[in-house]
Design a binder for these strands. Structure first.
Length: 762
DNA sequence: AAAACGCCGGTTTTT
DNA sequence: CCGGCGTTTT
């Protein structure tokens, strides 16, 4: 053990060896906090202070848990396998699978994702006859989630909102929502935590069991824990007080989902006699990068006094470049990556491109693909929310837990079996009347009297019953194949030979691949475990570090990771910091912490980009450089970037003074106009002068009629969507022409000349 | 019952 | 600009 501890610096070692009660490790970015946790686990087990299964270690992602376990095994061998290591959510599931029954749920509960929740809320709002606009799933979900994170059930929530009409209605929705979940034997994400706490409160004997089981508790990323998570660990550790939390308040970036920075700021009050160890030496980044990060975070008022320093070299200067639009921004990055690869002998996996919003991923993906640069996109398009994946998952969920009406309703007529909405509604209501699940209801054929599709429903029911029988005999991946075959899903896709169904089939194959992967690594590979694994994995969990490709992800997802070269893109006011955060100081400080996280991901080189014009929601607006750029001292940038900074400062002032001229406005509009059209296409015959004069009166609308003499009957034209066609008839209408066109593939269409992008074919 | 059309709202960030 | 959803059309 001694020689293992040699790997640590004095502070790290102090944190590892301290075992007498609560310990708060304030660990700056790159100061080796994961290392401390891993070594501490090893130390605890090696010294035989506690048994492996008496250690509870909580990480932020499953991936972090897995890595920590691997490293601990490397240090002290296989016994580290027995440690309870996971995220708050996965640990709670593990507890609830054993203990949930006293709360009135079955052990085989399903976990509802966001889409399932939306469905339930919509159903409930409809049932209560509330206005579906006013009580949208997004708003209702937010309120319910907030309530659950404050440990309020619907009753407590109702008490807390007396007098607030709208929220009183939410209380009604919450109540029925929760009842529905229970009927479905389903838990949402917040329930996993809330019900665990509820269980401990209602059944103290269960709490006592876990209190005496977990003799040492460790929590990583403590700055991002919320009230209920705090409650959990304080309950579990209240007897022995052996709790070690590690965090960095400068990296607290999950306030929007209830993370409470006061957990870390008040740790010493909540856990009296707590020892505090600060880790301030950074091993990750160059001095320039660390300097930049320190200067940015300095602008936040609320923070614990802590100074990060490094013995590393000064390193490369920071680069900053402004491009015309988001496409050029990514094209620049792609070129830059190739350049750095060549000059610095790096490979694609050394790079990460970090952005603020998922919407930015689209352009990134497009340009990376086009340029042939290998990339791995984290998050982005949601694999598990694709229709075909949701469908197959619903089959599995129903087989696992037949109370899941949401899953049943999704697939009872998918593929089409002639079971219509009226029939499903009737079943739904009848089941509710009888207080049973739909699946239970249809077990008894006499319940189907008077329903036209009764025969089809019986066939469906028998099929699911057969799957249930097969469930325990088959590997999950084989069960999936069986479902696709027997349900007719595969036939349905094959029947329609389109690119779309081909894609769907490929996605399903990929999904089966995920299951096979899962079977490989888990000894206990039940259907339930598989469903759990797909419900609880985060996007980063799927990150394959060995793949030789550039990583593209949000700054949030990048937490805890590091890369040799980091690009921070879209550094513009309104995007980063986000529009919504700008008004509130507190929220803007969270954005600044996020920026700090982004910068400190970089080991050797940092590149910052933004654009002067950004298209969002289909319309283009001028962008102003992010305030965070000006918070980085100019001398940390390279020469070329400095020019950019001073230029941008001038431009920013101009905008703030609202002084840009009419001429500039016109140019702005003109730019936008020509951007919309295909670059090489000049067939519109735009008269620049008349166009410019038209925007004075009519700033952004389509041009006035200039098509009068352009088209004649019999002329061949090409439309972007409809393809090639011939003009059959031309009729003037107001300022425009009405064209009747027969398209070769798409058939007859009537189009207005001024609004249709038509190309004349000779 | 299924395709086609048209309107609306959404972009912060996620276990 | 996109996807989801309700309405209309075949």
């Amino acid at each position: 053990m001694e020689e293992i501890l040699q790997d640590l610096n004095n502070k790290q070692r102090e944190a590892v060896e301290y075992l007498d009660g609560p310990l708060l490790v304030l660990a700056g970015a790159g100061s080796g906090k994961t290392r401390v946790l891993t070594y501490k686990i090893a130390y605890l087990l090696n010294k035989e202070v506690v048994k492996p299964w008496e250690v509870l270690a909580i990480t932020f992602t499953n991936k972090a848990a897995k890595e920590m376990k691997e490293r601990a095994i490397n240090l002290i061998g296989e016994k580290a396998n027995e440690v309870w290591l996971g995220t708050f959510h996965s640990v709670c599931v593990r507890i609830l699978r054993r203990e949930i029954e006293p709360l009135g749920y079955g052990k085989d509960f399903n976990i509802f994702d966001e889409l399932d929740k939306d469905k339930v809320i919509k159903e409930v709002v409809k049932k209560l006859n509330f206005d579906e606009k006013q009580y949208s799933p997004s708003y209702v979900k937010y309120e319910i989630s907030k309530a659950k994170n404050e440990m309020k059930d619907s009753k407590k929530y109702r008490e807390s909102v007396i007098g607030d009409y709208r929220r009183e209605k939410i209380a009604d929705i919450y109540e029925l929502y929760q009842m529905t979940l229970k009927q479905n034997n389903a838990l949402d994400f917040d329930d996993l935590l809330m019900l665990t706490v509820e269980l401990f409160v209602k059944f103290p004997d269960i709490l006592i069991r876990y209190q005496s089981k977990f003799k040492y508790i460790l929590v990583d990323e403590y700055q991002d824990t919320n009230k209920i998570q705090f409650l959990l660990i304080s309950m579990l550790s209240s007897v022995h007080g052996n709790i070690c939390v590690v965090g960095d308040e400068s990296q607290s970036i999950y306030g929007f989902r209830g993370a409470d920075i006061s957990n870390i700021l008040n740790f010493e009050n909540e856990f009296p006699n707590a020892k505090v160890v600060k880790l301030e030496e950074n091993y990750r980044s160059t001095q320039n990068i660390l300097n930049a990060a320190n200067h940015v975070i300095k602008n936040n008022k609320s923070k614990i006094d802590k100074k990060l320093w490094t013995q590393n070299d000064e390193g490369k200067k920071i680069e900053y470049k402004t491009l015309n639009n988001e496409y050029e921004e990514v094209e620049y990055i792609v070129d830059k990556i190739d350049e750095i690869c060549k000059d610095e002998k790096m490979t694609y996996s050394d790079f990460a491109v970090l952005f603020r919003t998922n919407a930015q991923a689209r352009v990134l993906e497009e340009v990376f693909m086009r340029s042939g640069t290998p990339y791995k996109l984290i998050g982005g398009l949601k694999f598990y929310s694709r229709k075909e994946i949701k469908d197959l998952t619903s089959y599995l969920k129903l087989i696992q837990n037949t109370n899941d009406n949401i899953a049943l309703k999704r697939i009872i007529n998918e593929p089409k079996r002639g079971i219509g909405d009226t029939a499903i509604d009737r079943l739904d209501r009848l089941a509710e009347q009888k207080g049973v699940s739909i699946f239970e209801l249809i077990q008894d054929s006499s319940n189907l009297e008077g329903i036209r599709s009764a025969g089809n429903i019986i066939m469906f029911r028998d099929m699911i019953n057969n799957f249930k029988k097969a469930k325990d005999e088959l590997l999950v991946s084989d069960l999936m194949k069986l479902i696709l075959k027997e349900s007719g899903y595969e036939d349905m896709l094959n029947a329609e030979p389109s690119k779309e169904s081909e894609m769907r089939f490929e996605n399903l194959m990929e999904f089966i691949g995920v299951a096979m992967e899962f079977e490989k690594e888990s000894a206990d590979n039940s259907l339930q475990d598989f469903l759990e694994s797909i419900a609880l994995v985060s996007d980063v969990d799927k990150l394959d570090e060995s793949a030789e490709a550039v990583t593209l992800m949000t700054m949030h997802s990048a937490k805890g990771l590091e890369f040799n070269v980091v690009f921070l893109v879209g550094m513009e006011e309104g995007l980063f910091p986000s529009k919504k955060s700008i008004e509130e100081d507190e929220k803007c400080e969270e954005e600044r912490r996020l920026c700090y996280v982004g910068i400190t991901r970089a080991k050797k080189k940092l590149c910052i980009t933004n654009v002067s014009k950004r298209t969002l929601f289909g319309s283009t607006t001028y962008a102003i450089p992010s305030r965070f750029i000006s918070e980085i001292p100019e001398e940390l940038f390279d020469e070329a970037s400095k020019d950019n900074i001073s230029l941008k400062k001038r431009k920013q002032e101009k905008f703030l003074d609202n002084e840009y001229s009419q001429v500039e406005k016109m140019i702005n509009n003109f730019d936008r106009y020509i951007e919309v059209k295909p670059k090489s296409n000049n067939s519109f015959g735009i008269n620049v002068n008349s166009f410019l004069s038209s925007i004075k009166t009519n700033s952004t609308k389509a041009p006035t009629n200039n098509n009068t003499n352009k088209y004649v009957v019999g002329m061949y034209v090409k439309h972007k969507k409809f393809g090639k066609g011939v003009i059959q008839k031309i009729e003037p209408e107001d300022d425009d022409l009405k064209l009747d066109i027969m398209f070769e593939q798409s058939g007859f269409k009537r189009l207005m000349a001024n609004y249709t992008p038509l190309e004349i074919v000779k």
